[in-house]
């Protein structure tokens, strides 16, 4: 178990179909859940940090409630069993008590709701996006596009167990991961080509449905370089369990280098005829 716990593996970025030239091998941290994990994965985005901090507060309140009720139940079992207390009381009303146990939960809920709504508005908000990427769900793979960068577009397909390479975790690895720069406000547009899928990355606090016929928008800013793993989170048919999300977070410089090679590999070869473009431009005036 120990060696699986913190597997720092040498991760060769030639995974990306040889498109990425970063000067050979790079040490990459893998961010995913670990055996016997009981809580969240380490938060690695501003949203995730706030989500996890809020949950820590909530967990304390909830644990206190559960322990309180358990305590009362234990006391009742000890004190009010038929041997210890042969004659039952006949009390069936206490207005003050009833008011208290209505009001106190309301106060607790207000204490929860205020930071909860603050968190909601924070995670929703798209800051001035420095980069836009587009994610399209398909049965059963993801298509990633970089509309800001000459329409780089590629599919990201699950690697079956018998084709895994050294260091690739089972069920989570893809042939071409989504490459993103760290410390960048990234706007993510989500669409679907068939059924509803869900693009999810636990360590980044990222999750949103891809729905056919509409664009959804969310955002992320990644704190740490490394490889992030997630899975499709909406039942999307037979191979729902086998369309993982893999994000390769790299430095801004490495990202720009990757863009150059990726544009050659995946960029669109402009198929629009000049004539129509001119026609369109003429209409526009």
């Amino acid at each position: 178990m120990g060696d699986m716990l913190k597997r720092l593996s040498v991760f060769v970025l030639t995974l990306m179909a040889g498109a990425m030239v970063l000067g050979g091998e790079v040490m990459a941290q893998q961010y995913r859940s670990e055996p016997w994990q009981m809580g969240f994965q380490e938060p690695r985005s501003p949203s995730a940090e706030r989500i996890f901090a809020f949950h820590d507060m909530l967990l304390v309140i909830e644990a206190a409630i559960v322990i309180f009720v358990l305590g009362i139940m234990t006391y009742i079992i000890v004190k009010f069993n038929s041997k210890a207390n042969p004659t039952p009381s006949k009390t069936s009303h206490n207005t003050l008590l009833e008011v208290v146990w209505t009001i106190v939960p309301i106060i607790i809920l207000v204490v929860i709701a205020v930071p909860s709504l603050k968190l909601l508005y924070f995670t929703d908000r798209t800051y001035d996006p420095e980069l836009t990427i587009k994610v399209t769900g398909n049965q059963w793979y993801w298509t990633y596009e970089y509309p800001d960068n000459n329409d780089i577009e590629f599919d990201s397909v699950y690697v079956p167990d018998d084709e895994l390479e050294e260091g690739q975790p089972r069920m989570l690895s893809v042939d071409s991961p989504l490459v993103l720069p760290v410390d960048t406000n990234i706007r993510i547009l989500l669409a679907s080509n068939d059924v509803i899928h869900n693009f999810a990355m636990p360590a980044l606090g990222l999750k949103l449905d891809t729905t056919p016929g509409r664009a959804n928008e969310t955002w992320v800013s990644i704190n740490d370089e490394g490889t992030y793993y997630g899975m499709c989170s909406e039942l999307c048919g037979v191979n729902h369990g086998f369309m993982p999300v893999q994000i390769e977070a790299v430095s801004k410089e490495a990202f720009n280098e990757w863009l150059v090679s990726a544009e050659e590999e995946f960029g669109s070869n402009d198929s629009r005829s000049d004539e129509v473009v001119k026609f369109a431009a003429a209409l526009g005036q």
């Binding site: 587009k134 509309p147 800001d148 329409d151 669409a191 056919p212 016929g213 664009a215 198929s271 473009v277």
Partner: peptide, 21 residues
């Protein structure tokens, strides 16, 4: 304004914005 374009897989068309922004 970013112009986003999608084509459903059932439609054999190409569909793109003239300029993306």
């Amino acid at each position: 304004v970013m112009l986003d374009a999608n084509v459903n897989k059932g439609l054999d068309w190409e569909f793109k914005p003239q300029v993306s922004k």
